[in-house]
Each structure stands twice: as structure tokens, then as C-alpha cells.
């Protein structure tokens, strides 16, 4: 790691002020992606602003038809939350499959979506549910939030405070793991909402994206057979040593169907994880640090 100044503000205002005074300071949430990137010297900041002392950013509550989760809430808390499990079981299941248990103890919702790793799980949940990201400056619709690989609309001095997830009629997340990192090789979040079906795909492309053709078909008929006539083009999808774009395209269809089947049939929280497989499915899964989970970004650090 390059050295940096460490700040741990006691209030959100302090945090915002520190950020505004130093252009290249970076926010530190759970650190599960940022610190590994710093350790490998893939990133450099002159200061880190640790949000760990801001208790008001941590917590889960239900407000009307929404589940509101503080940005600094660790994945494990979301996974274990009875409120989330009752209202949006698919979200609890997704959180319970991020990274590994030790990463989930530390990694946070805000950190995950701000990092916007193209293979992370939370972006699929946020986009799939059509959640609203609340920051110190504004509220941002999920559809506007993710704009590219590791890229969001967040401005340099903007801090995510919470994410508001609408409670939907049915939802499910199906993930197919990359065998090494155990990030999503392909993860699909399907949500049936009053406004129609939303399908968000992570791991397959440079950024999380909505699978519009599937959404239209599923809005007409919320059944995996509705997808039989649909395919997704491999062009534009990620291709790396773990999976070709062509295979990822295939997996997107399979995982979408499985998510639909799960959402349609299983109203309660379900963790369908079977045991022992390579390239396991259904196992809401993994997230670890990783700058760049797609081809070309990985590999030897000696380049």
C-alpha cells in the first residue's frame, strides 16, 4: 500500500467536509474491495475517510412499502434481518451469499454499490428491485446509478447514506459462481413489481444491466417458459479465462429462468444452495475484493 492519511470522522458533516477539502481522498466503508486494491497498489489515494464511526448509516428499517438499509450496514446484518426476510426474502438471500462469511461480517451495502464491481451481487439487487440510492446530496434511481465498469454517477464528494428497496410481489436472485473468485460469473435478479417485471444481470457484462427483452416477456407472463423464445446476444458480454461470452449468454438465460422459477414458486426466503459443486448455482454468492472481475483487468500484476 502507498501510505495515506487516515481520517475517521464522527459525523456525516465532518466526513463531507473532509472530502471536500481533499480532492483525492477516498471513502472507506467495509474495505473489502478497496483495501485489497490498495494492498496490490492498484489504486492510490492520499487519504481515506473511514465511515465506520457513523452509526446513523447502519441499520435496517421498514418504512411503508420500502425496506431502508443504511449504507454502512454489513451484508451479514441484511442476510440475518427478519425484516428483510419477511419483506424481500430474495434480498436477504442475496446478501447472505456475498463474498464469504468473514467478508459479509465487514463488507457493506454502500461500499459494494459505490464500487460497482461488474460481478458484484448488490448491484443486481439494487437494479433488479428498482431501489433508490440516497446520498448526502440527492436521491438517485437505480436505473441512473450504475453507468459502467466500476462507475456510478456518484460525485467525488457525495456519500451514500442509505438505499430504499421497494417491497415487490415476488423476487429471486440466482447466481452462478466463478470458481476462483466466487463472484458472479452470471447473477440474475428477477423482481415482479406492480409496474412490471425487472430483470437485472451482473457478472455477464462490463456493468450490471437490465435484460429488457426478458422483462417484457415476463411482464406478459411470469413463467420461465415465457423466456423460451428469447436469447441474449453474446456480443458485448464479458469473455475471460473462466467463461466465454457465448457461455455467459447461455448462463444468463438459464439463470434468468431459474430465478423466475424460484420467484414464482417460492414465496419465502429460500437458500437453495446445494452442496459441493463446482460452479454451483442457486447459491447466492460471493464477493470478494477485486478490482476488475472481468478479462483484461486481471492477471499478472507485473504488467
Amino acid at each position: 500500500m502507498y501510505d495515506f492519511e487516515y481520517h475517521k470522522p464522527k459525523s456525516l458533516d465532518d466526513a463531507a467536509a473532509t472530502l471536500s477539502q481533499h480532492e483525492d481522498f477516498k471513502l472507506l466503508a467495509g474495505g473489502m474491495s478497496l483495501l485489497p486494491a490498495l494492498k496490490l497498489r492498484l489504486a492510490r489515494y492520499s487519504g481515506l475517510v473511514d465511515l465506520g464511526a457513523l452509526g446513523q448509516l447502519r441499520g435496517i428499517r421498514r418504512e411503508g412499502d420500502e425496506i431502508v438499509i443504511g449504507a454502512m450496514t454489513p451484508h451479514a446484518e441484511v442476510a440475518d434481518s427478519a425484516a428483510v426476510a419477511r419483506a424481500i426474502p430474495a434480498l436477504a438471500a442475496l446478501a447472505g451469499g456475498i463474498g464469504d462469511p468473514l467478508v459479509r461480517n465487514r463488507g457493506t451495502l454502500g461500499g459494494s454499490i459505490a464500487n460497482a464491481d461488474p460481478a458484484a451481487d448488490y448491484p443486481a439487487g439494487v437494479l433488479g428491485l428498482g431501489a433508490t440510492v440516497v446520498t448526502t446530496r440527492r436521491t438517485i434511481a437505480a436505473d441512473k446509478f450504475f453507468i459502467g465498469m466500476f462507475e456510478t454517477v456518484l460525485e467525488p464528494r457525495e456519500i451514500i447514506t442509505e438505499v430504499r428497496f421497494p417491497i415487490v410481489e415476488a423476487a429471486a436472485y440466482s447466481k452462478f459462481r466463478q470458481p476462483a473468485s466466487r463472484f458472479a460469473l452470471v447473477g440474475v435478479f428477477v423482481a415482479r413489481t406492480r409496474g412490471g417485471v425487472r430483470v437485472a444481470v451482473t457478472g455477464a457484462a462490463p456493468s450490471v444491466f437490465r435484460f429488457k427483452e426478458a422483462e417484457e416477456a415476463l411482464t406478459k407472463q411470469f413463467d420461465s417458459t415465457a423466456l423460451d423464445a428469447i436469447t441474449i446476444a453474446a456480443a458485448g458480454l464479458n469473455s475471460d479465462i473462466h467463461a466465454s461470452a457465448e457461455y455467459r449468454a447461455h448462463c444468463v438465460m438459464v439463470m434468468t429462468k431459474r430465478a423466475v422459477a424460484k420467484a414464482a414458486n417460492v414465496p419465502s426466503p429460500c437458500n437453495e444452495r446445494g452442496r459441493v459443486r463446482q460452479g454451483a448455482t442457486m447459491s447466492v454468492n460471493i464477493n470478494t475484493p477485486s478490482p476488475g472481475s472481468s478479462a483484461g483487468e486481471r492477471g499478472s500484476t507485473y504488467r
Partner: peptide, 10 residues
């Protein structure tokens, strides 16, 4: 180049 140079890819 070794493209499986960490536990992320190996």
C-alpha cells in the same frame, strides 16, 4: 502473461 495470477483467477 499469467492470467491466473491470484486466488481471484486460480
Amino acid at each position: 502473461q499469467l492470467l491466473s495470477g491470484s486466488f481471484m483467477d486460480y
